[in-house]
């Protein structure tokens, strides 16, 4: 299985002076997978992707990308992958088209293919009408799409995207993911890091990193099932006092805040819901609604991370 994996990591480790940013990662990613990398700030997502892009020296362990050894054939691997940095930036003084051309030349795209690919990618990214605009004058979302187009110009087999949608409005975010899905359907292997759980939900497999380690690596469905208990969604009038109240009740494993809403993880929703209602009424804590709800990715992750922290 690992022999034909698009990316295979075995105890991949990166140490900086004072910390282990990536700690013994073992992952095998199959060709065509859409792999999501999630985890809190500082978990080591960027460091992992930079290692894979050949931008950092490996401290320990090995990685094979597209069948090539990462440490030995870094430069060769670079033409097989497309990497989009978290704090990417395009050349501000160059136009959209000129940025694309620049990367096409650096990736040795044959001259006769450049024009067609440029047009296709501009269309794909919805940038055709802005092709003469300077990158500096594009909106944040358009810049991200341009960056993606630039990493796609050499039609890489493997894409490494580091939080490509952070700071982008929801509409652009959806458009961006439609592009990724299309690439996924066409067989590109994609690793994407994201802070958004709805995005993680769209991946075929998700790896959760915490303090440099991979603590879970499974499909979104499996991850949700891993969380103990069931969920109840409560919308109290005064969430602060309600939170204190319900956290103490028997059977309540965890309380998470979502704005004014509280998500309660309980051992059994069927059994605990009436009990909670009774307590709230008796304490005169009014609420707008209370209902059982499916456990989402977000609750699952917060719960998994909390368990790590305890």
């Amino acid at each position: 299985m690992t022999s034909q994996a698009a990316i295979a990591l075995s105890s991949l480790t990166k140490e900086f002076k004072d910390n282990r940013a990536v700690d013994s990662l073992d992952i095998s990613i199959q060709p065509g997978e859409l792999f999501g990398l999630v985890g809190p700030d500082g978990a080591g997502k960027t460091t992992t992707l930079r290692l894979l892009a050949g931008l950092l020296d490996i401290t320990e362990g090995e990685a094979t990308i597209a069948g090539l050894d990462l440490a030995a054939e870094t430069e060769k691997i670079k033409s097989h992958i497309g990497y989009m940095a978290q704090e990417f930036s395009m050349y501000a003084e160059l136009s959209v088209e000129e940025n694309l051309l620049f990367f096409a030349e650096l990736y040795d795209v044959p001259v006769e293919h450049i024009q067609a690919r440029k047009e296709r990618l501009l269309e794909f990214a919805g940038l055709t009408e802005f092709k003469e605009r300077r990158a500096a004058h594009l909106s944040g979302g358009m810049q991200k799409k341009l960056a993606l187009a630039c990493t796609l110009i050499h039609e890489p087999q493997i894409l490494l995207l580091d939080e490509p949608t952070t700071g982008v409005d929801p509409v652009s975010r959806r458009e961006f993911w439609n592009i990724l899905t299309e690439l996924h359907i066409n067989g590109t292997t994609i690793i994407v890091s994201t802070p958004y759980m709805d995005e993680a939900d769209r991946c075929s497999r998700v790896g959760l990193m915490y303090a440099g380690r991979l603590i879970v690596c499974a499909s979104p469905q499996e991850i949700r099932q891993r969380v103990e208990g069931e969920m109840i969604e409560l919308r109290p009038e005064d969430w602060q006092s309600a939170r204190v109240l319900v956290a103490e009740l028997p059977g309540v494993l965890e309380v998470q805040n979502y704005g004014e809403r509280l998500h309660l993880l309980v051992d059994s929703a069927e059994k605990r819901l009436p009990e909670i209602e009774t307590v709230l009424r008796s304490k005169k804590a009014s609420y707008r609604s209370i209902r059982p709800a499916p456990t989402g990715m977000e609750e699952a992750f917060i719960s998994l991370i909390k368990r790590m922290e305890d």
């Binding site: 931008l55 060769k76 033409s79 990417f88 930036s89 650096l106 990736y107 040795d108 630039c150």
Partner: peptide, 12 residues
């Protein structure tokens, strides 16, 4: 400006 990171990821 972060463009060097992008540049280093290419085979230049």
């Amino acid at each position: 400006h972060g463009t060097l990171e992008q540049l280093m990821a290419t085979p230049i």
